[in-house]
């Protein structure tokens, strides 16, 4: 299978002083993305304090009302307030995105390090990873969801598993080239244990590419959560998530476009913000990756 060759470079080589102002000038889109994300995080955390009402409250009289002063984003077919649902919905999307990114990076890093360093493990692990990668991610995720109950935790699990092999490959490629580097060989020569070498010398050098990879995983997880919910195999519909709100509202595209419009807009903006942040980070942290193959969203 085709592997993107990743040239790791060394943390030790890079200047660290980049003031915020300089970053802003050099990369305004990244800062914009970061600011939007921050705003979304604040809104998600403080959802009850942003003029919302109970997102579950049914109101049989006020069904399918358009955006107005009372209902900023309108109401859905059950008379629930869409502004409140969209704000609360950001919690699920952001949580799924962050958790999938962190989990797949952590697990992928662990497996990748071992696999890159212990040649005997490597063959078996990589065959399994190739196998998982051969199953299209969304199919794998919905198949996993078919095995489990619909819940936010299970969605996170189902989206994490397909991402792991890509992280493993990335880490492994980094490790394979790092272990030939002089400073790693040197510390091996002075008798440092394998674990020490992995933790002290190899891991820090994988952080930058992993963070970049993590943003892409995060972006794709947010979209995939919406896909799963749209297909009826995601977050249980009694929890408002952007995907669920849109899945329920798709019947009403023509008479109540706002049901799909607002959550879709927020979803698109969030993913856009994460992608911009990722592109910016890549350019800043890892210029050599910049023109390379992008990870996360491939699949």
């Amino acid at each position: 299978m085709v592997t993107a060759t990743v040239q790791p470079h060394l943390v030790e080589d890079r200047p660290r002083s980049a003031s915020l102002l300089r970053m802003l000038r050099r990369n305004p889109t990244m800062v914009g993305g970061a600011c939007f994300l921050l705003a979304m995080l604040v809104a998600a955390a403080g959802a009850p304090y942003f003029g919302t009402i109970d997102p579950e409250e049914l109101n049989p009289i006020d069904r399918l009302r358009g955006p107005s002063l009372t209902y900023w984003f309108g109401t859905d077919m059950l008379g629930r307030d869409l502004y409140s649902r969209t704000v609360y919905g950001s919690r699920i999307s952001l949580m799924v995105g962050l958790c999938v990114a962190v989990l797949s990076l952590t697990i992928g890093l662990a497996i990748g390090l071992l696999s890159g360093y212990l040649r005997r493990v490597d063959a078996v692990v990589m065959r399994i990873m190739d196998g998982i990668m051969a199953i299209p991610a969304i199919l794998l995720a919905i198949a996993l969801m078919a095995l489990m109950n619909a819940s936010a935790q299970n969605v996170i699990l189902a989206l994490t598993i397909p991402e792991i092999p890509r992280v493993v490959r990335l880490v492994r490629a980094l490790v394979l080239s790092l272990r030939e580097q002089a400073f790693v060989e040197a510390s091996r020569a002075v008798g440092a244990s394998i674990w020490r070498v992995l933790l002290r010398h190899v891991t820090p050098n994988t952080i930058a590419p992993l963070i970049v990879q993590g943003t892409y995983i995060c972006a794709s997880a947010v979209i995939f959560e919406a896909y799963l919910s749209f297909l009826g195999a995601g977050t249980p519909p009694n929890i408002p998530s952007w995907g669920n709100i849109m899945a329920e509202g798709r019947t009403y595209v023509q008479i109540a476009f706002w049901i799909i419009l607002f959550p879709g807009l927020f979803l698109a903006l969030t993913v856009l913000a994460v992608n911009l942040l990722g592109d910016g980070l890549r350019d800043t942290l890892d210029p050599k990756l910049a023109r390379g193959f992008r990870g996360g969203l491939a699949e």
Partner: peptide
């Protein structure tokens, strides 16, 4: 290119149906 990555497929689909077909 960045937008293409960020727009959910089904959202786009409904947008197209709404615009071009209806």
């Amino acid at each position: 290119a960045v937008l293409g990555f960020s727009l959910p497929v089904f959202w786009l689909g409904f947008l197209f149906i709404f615009g071009f077909a209806l």
